[in-house]
Design a protein around this nucleic acid. Structure first.
Lengths: 329, 329
DNA sequence: TTGAAAGCGTTACCAA
DNA sequence: TTGGTAACGCTTTCAA
């Protein structure tokens, strides 16, 4: 920076200002400075400016997985929402593991982010302590935690399970099953299952047809194998909700390989509103939670919190899951 | 840090060392320091340490999209490869836009990353200048650029196109088409198409059945619409290569809706070895480039370059695309 | 609109 | 194994 200042015949202070959009520098000097910088190949050092100004421009974001279209959409919404600000995303994925989440939170906090966004409301104790003491806004998304740390942009996963049961019941199905992964790791999947079970009970239906197969997030293959198990254990099942559209697609292909017609012999519902479920034949009934919108809302709230002087108490934003009925059910 | 030093009765220098793994501090003092830090809620500030040590621990990574399973896999490979190092990924996605890539590179360079990884060999002039002058290792992956900036971990997209043609020809197909997006933005897709065309010419076959539909990356829907167009324009087409598995799946569903049997009436090939193409019915013939491995290799090379004293000239690493034959062709 | 001086929180370097 | 001192490259603050 001193070099650029020298080359332009101004002080380094002026150079610094020339790189801040709002600062008061005459347009003429600013242009001269920028030119000189380009010629010298000078790029401003955010490490130093961050240290000095105590604003790193980072927003730490932790999602369970990037290989999941839903979280990828949320990330897209976040990126869009932060686009016009000078905030940059520091992304990590936890592989659906709270211990890994803790590791990432600790790592990211060292970078002094101006906000932290995590997925879900389930954390290790140590992680929660980190987040509480972070001293910056924290957003928990994709869930409605009982004891929120700070901000919440989410929906009820149990409600998603209930919605699908309600739909099946309206269609007249009575022997209804659920396919998901081993329940320990994926708290949101477990919530969907819990809502599913409760809704069955509320409807006075038998709630025993549960297949848990594979480590969350379960794949198409695991969905297929789970359906195989469902069919052998409870052959007269009429409808199955799957914890995600991917497993629903796998389950459907298994039915088709077994010569079952969907939905005549077996109705199928998924979750997540993937492109796939729209284009599969038959198209798969699913639940849309507006993943991209969740990201956008989280970004908007962060921006609002960081700019407003009044750090007023914001209410949790509750998003309504929406059932999308398609031919598979 | 001064607080922690005070609380422990040592100098801040010792506290600093207690947080570096290799440093020489007696185990006893280190434990005391860590304890005190935990109690005080102290988290080390990488911004300051980065400034002082000139090591930020960042690796800037730019991929076209996170919503693409292939790049998500590469990212996974990168993460795995950097896991045991103290390097952190600074991720950006360019939306298949070189101008956006330029913006990201400039932004990221301010963070003083220790290495930069970009996707493909096509950049704006200004972006290329940034990368050349970055003063850190640069990896171009997913392609074999004619004039590499520095390191290369990639494969020939043209070769991927040729492989599929070769396979179709062996199967006895003669009227072969290609479905992709508008060619301007996706250089790698365009390369695959170029290889496809060249292979057709080499085999003495007509190379006119080309449908370009939608902005890359094209979706299932666009694949379906492109197939519709293909069928109306060249109804006697026997086989179609699609620029990706997603579009291949869309194209296949279009055939099925039109009452065509796959592969008897229309053979289909994709690219990318998505889970989907394995589980679709029929399963889709595709090309695997080992996306995750590309990431892992890129990570390994970065680590090697950053640790070795001999910054010797490394050869481009050329990966061989592999044809995976399935029932759709 | 510009400049000078004093940090920001850490580590490199040298000394004990 | 530990401590003191001087940066690291910027921005804040105050003054002109």
């Amino acid at each position: 920076m001193a070099d650029v200042a020298h080359a332009t015949g101004v002080s380094s202070m002026t150079v610094s200002r020339a790189f801040k959009d709002d600062a008061s520098v005459s347009k003429q000097t600013r242009d001269r400075i920028r030119e000189a910088a380009d010629a010298l190949g000078y790029v401003i050092d955010s490490t130093a400016s961050g240290l000095s100004s105590r604003k790193t421009g980072f927003v730490a974001v932790i999602i369970p997985s990037v290989s999941n279209a839903n979280f990828a959409d949320t990330l897209r919404g976040l990126t869009e929402g932060l686009r016009e600000t000078n905030l940059q995303i520091l992304l990590g994925y936890s592989d659906y593991d709270v211990k890994e989440e803790e590791r990432l939170v600790e790592l990211f906090l060292r970078r002094r982010p101006e906000a932290v966004i995590v997925t879900g409301g389930t954390h290790t104790d140590r992680c929660r302590r980190f987040l509480v003491n972070a001293g910056v806004p924290v957003v928990e998304m994709w869930d409605l935690p009982h004891e929120p740390i700070d901000q919440v942009i989410g929906f009820s996963n149990a409600q998603a399970g209930r919605l699908m049961v309600q739909h099946f019941v309206e269609r007249g199905y009575e022997r209804i099953g659920f396919i998901g992964g081993d329940t320990s790791r994926d708290a949101r999947g477990a919530d969907r299952r819990a809502g599913f079970l409760q809704a069955l009970c509320d409807s006075g239906l038998e709630a025993t047809r549960l297949v848990a197969f594979g480590t969350p997030p379960i794949t198409m293959r695991e969905g297929a194998r789970a359906m195989k198990q469902m069919l052998s254990q409870w052959p007269n099942t009429q409808a199955v909700m799957c914890v995600s559209d991917l497993s629903a697609f796998g389950a459907m292909t298994e039915c088709q390989r077994s010569g079952l017609r969907v939905p005549e012999d077996m109705a199928i519902g998924g979750f997540g509103s993937y492109d796939l479920s729209e284009h599969a034949i038959p198209a798969i009934t699913t639940i849309d939670v507006g993943a991209r919108n969740i990201g956008r809302q989280a970004a908007m709230r962060i921006v609002a919190l960081l700019s407003s002087t009044s750090q007023g108490n914001w209410e949790p934003m509750q998003i309504e899951p929406e059932l999308i009925v398609r031919h598979s059910s």
